[in-house]
Simulated assay, not measured.
Amino acid sequence: MAETQQIPVTVLGLGAVGQAMAATLLKAGRASTVWNRTAGKDADLVAAGATSVASVAAAHGIDYLDRASWPCPR
């Protein structure tokens, strides 16, 4: 079986969806970077192996950015 390279993922926004998504990625062994505007919401994810960044600008260009949990206009 051929090995596949997994792309690291950055999750921006750690509300209910972002927390769950980042936790699932980490459990699957995927390298993950996380950011949230409220400091400290990433503590459990960092303890589980995520890398925290201080700003969205710091996250830019690190990994594939997951914007699925960003608010969408209706």
Rank of each mutant, 00 (worst) to 15 (best):
M1L: 09
M1T: 09
M1R: 13
A2H: 12
T4H: 14
Q5K: 15
Q5E: 14
Q6N: 11
Q6K: 15
Q6L: 15
Q6V: 14
I7D: 11
I7W: 09
I7T: 15
V9G: 03
T10C: 12
V11M: 09
L12Q: 04
G13Q: 07
L14W: 02
L14C: 02
L14F: 00
G15C: 05
G15S: 06
A16Y: 04
V17E: 05
V17L: 14
Q19F: 01
Q19T: 13
A20W: 03
A20L: 12
A20E: 09
A20N: 11
M21H: 10
A22I: 05
T24C: 10
L25F: 04
L26H: 07
L26G: 03
K27Y: 00
K27F: 00
A28I: 03
A28W: 04
G29Y: 07
G29S: 08
S32L: 10
S32H: 02
T33K: 10
T33G: 08
T33Y: 09
V34R: 08
V34Q: 06
V34E: 03
W35G: 01
W35N: 08
W35R: 12
T38W: 00
T38K: 02
T38I: 01
T38C: 00
A39I: 01
G40S: 07
D42R: 02
D42I: 01
D42K: 01
A43V: 09
A43M: 01
D44G: 05
D44S: 13
D44Q: 14
L45C: 02
L45H: 04
A47Q: 13
A47D: 06
A48Y: 04
A50M: 12
T51R: 15
T51Q: 13
S52V: 10
S52F: 01
S52P: 02
A54Y: 00
A54V: 00
S55M: 09
S55I: 08
V56I: 15
A57Q: 13
A57C: 01
A57K: 14
A58N: 09
A58C: 04
A58T: 05
A59G: 06
A59T: 09
A59I: 10
H60V: 09
G61K: 12
